[in-house]
Amino acid sequence: MTDIRPFLAKIRRSIAAHRTAAADGYRRKLSDSSASADLYGTANAVILLYTINELPAFGTDEHLAFVSSLQQFQDPHTGLFNGIGHHPLHGTAFAISALELLDSKPLYPLTDLQELKDKAALYEFLAGLNWVREPWAESHKGAGLYAAMVLAGEVDAAWEDAYFNWLHEETDPATGLWRKQAMHTVASAPLFHHLASSFHYLFNLNYRNRKMRYPDAWIDTCLQLNNAGEIPLKADALSFVELDVLYTLICAASQTEHRAAELQAMIHAICHHLLNSVESLSGGPDDDVFEDIHELCGTTCALALVQSVMSGQIVSGRILQKVLDRRPFI
């Protein structure tokens, strides 16, 4: 049994420590200025509180303060949300998906994205992403566009169908991933980068209950990477890697019995790895906090998946909420 309550307590302390003096916002890192709020710090605070089921109730002063703080990051002229360290499309999707947890929306239309409502422009945009060399980073744009437009209420079902149809046609039959043939060239990024990229499109599919086109091939790819030691799990460190991998494995396992025993063994191995890390990360003085709540968000969201798989082996006092079961993007 693993007791995650000390980790949950450290999450709470860390959120409080990252609060800034500005407009009820939060900074991403403790080393950042305590005088100004950051989009990622504020959005991650919302996601963390949602995951541990402690988000302020709708309509309370705390809830309204979160909404106002997130909305202030939107540029009224472009409609985009700009956060430090990521492309504006990522920042826009990240902020809007955090607002969704608060049952709220952006204040302004997504003006700079309006041209991508056109199907031809959408397909040109998706095809123009660097799927070969930078699939992971580029997926923040390709997946973020969908999450931002849909959660903001900017597009209709026909646009969503067009988006999913493009992904369907561009699924690689050999690996199960996106984009077709992108990972089979000499210049390609490592295969794990394509898996991490595809994770971002997968949660969009799941949001609308769309199935993976080649789940068996996806599983083969994951097992291949695992057997070759090419999944960069980090011991005793915060990370998004476990979330990316566990989410895709659990999704694939729900759609096929292909190599089921091997797949379940891989899932449980990663779960145990994460629980060991969480136990280690929970240590330290009673006032110890995490430096980076963006990375903390990744580990905490992954921990919610672990609990859903191994609930009988975790002492928590509560059920963690899986944020990607509610809306896309992370």
Rank of each mutant, 00 (worst) to 15 (best):
K29R: 15
F192I: 12
V186R: 15
A228G: 10
N53M: 01
S197Q: 02
D103Q: 13
F290A: 09
D287G: 05
A162T: 07
F329G: 00
N276C: 06
R210E: 08
A302T: 05
Q224P: 01
I219Q: 05
L305S: 03
P215C: 02
T92L: 02
F192H: 04
V245N: 07
G283L: 09
G153A: 08
N130G: 03
D286Q: 15
A148C: 07
P173Q: 06
F199W: 09
G41E: 12
A196Y: 07
E257K: 06
E257C: 03
S198H: 02
H193E: 15
L101R: 15
I11N: 04
L145D: 05
T185V: 14
H194A: 09
L320T: 06
L167Q: 06
A196H: 02
W159S: 07
E62P: 04
A23I: 00
F164S: 07
V315L: 15
H63V: 13
V132Y: 00
H273V: 09
H294S: 11
S36V: 15
L49S: 10
K105Y: 05
I231W: 13
N44G: 12
H273P: 04
F192C: 04
Y247C: 04
F58L: 11
L246Y: 07
E291D: 11
E291G: 05
I270G: 13
E291S: 08
W159I: 10
S14M: 06
K322V: 11
T175L: 03
P56K: 10
N204E: 08
F192D: 00
Y26I: 07
Q321D: 06
G312F: 03
M149Y: 08
K117N: 12
G25R: 05
V278G: 11
R28H: 12
A137C: 01
L102E: 08
L303T: 05
Y214H: 15
L145M: 12
C222T: 09
Y50Q: 04
A158E: 12
Y123I: 06
N209E: 07
E160I: 00
K105R: 12
T171K: 01
L274S: 13
G59Y: 08
G128S: 07
Q224G: 07
H90E: 11
I250G: 03
L107Q: 15
D38P: 04
R327H: 03
D292C: 09
Q224N: 10
A120M: 05
G283V: 10
L177C: 01
A127R: 04
L145S: 01
D244V: 08
Y146C: 12
A93F: 10
D236E: 13
E230W: 03
N130W: 02
A182S: 14
L129D: 01
A95M: 05
H200T: 00
D292H: 05
F240L: 09
V241I: 15
I96A: 08
A57E: 11
I96G: 04
I219W: 01
P76R: 03
